[in-house]
Each structure stands twice: as structure tokens, then as C-alpha cells.
Design a protein around this nucleic acid. Structure first.
Lengths: 127, 127
DNA sequence: TATTGTTATACTCTATAACTATA
DNA sequence: TATAGTTATAGAGTATAACAATA
């Protein structure tokens, strides 16, 4: 059942992401940077559960589109400082809002108590 | 959160499946046949959300191990009648029981009301 | 000609290993 | 020598297309 719900959520999200021309991983990256700048690509990869090599083409694309900043750290020029640009932050907000609206719609018919318990339990079980 | 829970459940199930030497897809097939015989491989594939070509090596293996029956339908020799053998049914029961025990353990600390609401909501949202 | 199952092929995603640059 | 990032390669998983058997 968890798997079916997951597939349903993905099917719901993909058109939203496609409309904004971001892949699922690109959105996860924007999400990972939305809490604040990250000092290394490896740290970002670990925090979102991705491989560091998988990240590179995604970061290349986001940078080309001006959605993220990615500069060498002056203090250690091996590492890249990562952050959202203003338009990156705006895009993330827009996509996140649409996804939240879709989730609201999906759960609209549920009793409020069930819904609260569901989110609480998800949070407890997901770690 | 749904994704994280899904990954956690899979991580929990994989050792159980490995101990019984069945892959995730093989277990899904056993599950799909546990409700009764299925008349065509394509129908089974559709019911479990798999591609019909993906099914073939899985069915080959399950048949070699005597866990499923797979005979041409005498009435239309293009189609294969699929069902569990006695040992297939027994294996399915054993694996399912272990997975359920693990799920119980995972949810043991939850308040009973939250737990009921969670399962009810999953069922409602998953279709 | 249409359908079931099968095989062969190609494509996507992911991980591993080798390489460059900085330290 | 060790580490961050990158590139190249290989592997798994999946889907697409061609094929064989039967209707």
C-alpha cells in the first residue's frame, strides 16, 4: 500500500515538475538547498540520498539555468559552495506550493482526525 | 516521507526475502497468484503492475523451483494457466507471515488509534 | 489477421573506478 | 598522501520492437 501511494504521488508530481521543466532529482536538489547553503557537493549528495556522481549533470543544468550558485570556496578551492539563486528560490517555492496543493486535494476527502494521524504516523515511521 | 517509509520497508523486507531466496518481484508474483489461479501471463503482469516481458525470467525461475504451475490452456494453447503449487503456497505464507511480524514490530510503539487511522488512510489513498 | 508468449535489443538509471585539481 | 570534484565505464533494471506459435 505504501508503494502504491508512493507511485500515485509520483504520478501526481511529475506533470507539475514537467511544467516547470525540472526533473525529480533537480527538485530534490532545490529542496536540499532551500534550507540554506551547503558547503560541498558530497554533503548535498549525502543529505538527499544520492550518489555524488549522479549529482553532477543535475547541478550543471541548474547552474546553466541560473537556478543555483556554485562557486569554489576561496578558503579551499577544492570544494564548491552551493546555494539557491533568487530565481531558484522562487522556482522552488512555486513547485512546492503546487505539490502541496495537489496533496491537499488528494487528502481533502479524509476525516481531519485521520489525516492528522496519518501525517503524524508517517513522520514517526519515516525517521 | 512516503518515499522514506517505502525505502525503510523495503530494507526491512529484503533480508526476509533473501533468507527464502525470492526476489522482490518473485514475491509480488507469489502474492498475485495467492488469491487464486490466473489465466494469462499478461493478466498477471497487469495486476501486479509489471511489464509482461519482465515477468518471464521470474516465472521461469519459480517454475523451475516447483513453486508455481504454468500449463498451456487446453482450450487455447496460446495462453498459460498460472497457479501456486503446494510448496509455492507454503513459501508465500511463510514469507508473508514474517513480513507481517516485522511490520507489527515497526508499528508496535504507535498509539493504537493512530495505527488504525494510518492503515485506513493508506488504504483509502492507495486505491 | 490478431493474440499470447518469447527473445533480442536498446535505453535509462545507478554505481564503480580512474582521473584532475587542489591541499 | 589525501580529499573534492569530474569523467568514463560498466552493470542492473526496464521498456520497445521483432519473432514464433496458435487461433
Amino acid at each position: 500500500m505504501v508503494g502504491r501511494l508512493g507511485r500515485r504521488l509520483i504520478a501526481m508530481e511529475l506533470p507539475i515538475l514537467a511544467r516547470h521543466e525540472v526533473s525529480m532529482w533537480a527538485y530534490v536538489v532545490l529542496n536540499g538547498l532551500s534550507g540554506g547553503a551547503v558547503r560541498t557537493q558530497a554533503a548535498l549528495a549525502a543529505s538527499i540520498g544520492a550518489d555524488k556522481t549522479r549529482l553532477i549533470p543535475i547541478l550543471d543544468d541548474l547552474q546553466d539555468r541560473g537556478l543555483i550558485s556554485r562557486e569554489p570556496d576561496p578558503g579551499d578551492r577544492r570544494v564548491r559552495l552551493l546555494g539557491l539563486t533568487e530565481s531558484g528560490r522562487e522556482l522552488h517555492r512555486a513547485v512546492q506550493a503546487e505539490i502541496r496543493d495537489a496533496e491537499e486535494l488528494l487528502m481533502a476527502e479524509l476525516p481531519a482526525a485521520d489525516r492528522d494521524a496519518f501525517v503524524r504516523t508517517l513522520s514517526a515511521l519515516g525517521g
